[in-house]
């Protein structure tokens, strides 16, 4: 069997294309939801941490450290197969969204926080001395600088975590990897996996290129 027949079998491609396109759409919206929710939650947590109250800081740091330490696959399996024992039954996509969104939030919180702590104290003083409130100084002065500093790491982290939507294949989410690997089993051809790789490139390559432009502009 030739290389082309193995990886680029036209008949197989035609047969599974509709399934894979549907899976691509699933991966796409799941990724978008995870990125939006994860970054937003991370930002909120980092802002809450600036208030310097131990009863806020302690749970935030615990959440960030535990979420970053656990392998996402473990948490996904626990949520999907364990929680029903407590009567909590979540759909596969919902589990994926909660777990990966949470992990991204944990990393994003740390990145935003690192950015916030590297904004010089004088910036805060200048803001407060001109009559701005703590919140105004945070949102108009400190946060824009922190976000700029964090953009490269945020983009990398968001990419790494959205690619983990492939973990949905272990809990029956019909995303790109699960659809293509079952197509591979049925057809006995590696072609669907090639299609999966192309589908991932179609989603993530533009994001990577966009990230480069963003970094060039802000750093």
């Amino acid at each position: 069997m030739s290389f082309l027949d193995t990886f680029f079998d036209g008949a197989v491609m035609a047969k599974y294309l509709p399934d894979l396109l549907a899976a691509l759409v699933t991966t796409l919206w799941l990724s978008a939801a995870i990125v939006i929710a994860g970054l937003a939650l991370g930002l909120v947590l980092a802002c809450l941490r600036t208030l310097g109250r131990w009863y806020l800081t302690l749970p935030i740091v615990a959440f960030a450290d535990i979420s970053r330490a656990l392998p996402p696959l473990v948490v996904i399996l626990v949520f999907y197969f364990g929680l029903p024992g407590l009567g909590i039954r979540l759909s596969g996509p919902m589990v994926l969204f909660i777990v990966l969104g949470g992990v991204l939030a944990a990393f994003a919180e740390e990145i935003f926080w690192a950015g916030l702590t590297s904004v010089p104290k004088g910036q805060w003083e200048a803001g407060r001395a001109t009559g701005l409130s703590f919140m105004q100084t945070l949102f108009d002065i400190a946060l824009p600088q922190a976000i700029r500093l964090g953009i490269p790491s945020l983009v990398n982290r968001a990419l790494a975590i959205t690619k983990m939507t492939a973990l949905g294949s272990v809990i029956g989410v019909k995303e790109i990897l699960s659809v293509s690997s079952s197509a591979q089993s049925f057809s006995g051809s590696a072609t669907p996996l090639t299609m999966a790789a192309l589908a991932y490139l179609a989603i993530f390559l533009p994001v990577v290129i966009f990230a480069r432009l963003l970094e060039k502009r802000y750093t």
Binding site: Q123, A126, A129, T130, G131, L132
Partner: peptide, 17 residues
């Protein structure tokens, strides 16, 4: 915050945004 509006301050390190 209101009181600080009446008191302008210039720093050694400028601290422009």
């Amino acid at each position: 915050d209101k009181m600080r509006l009446k008191i302008g301050m210039v720093f050694q390190g400028f601290h422009l945004y």
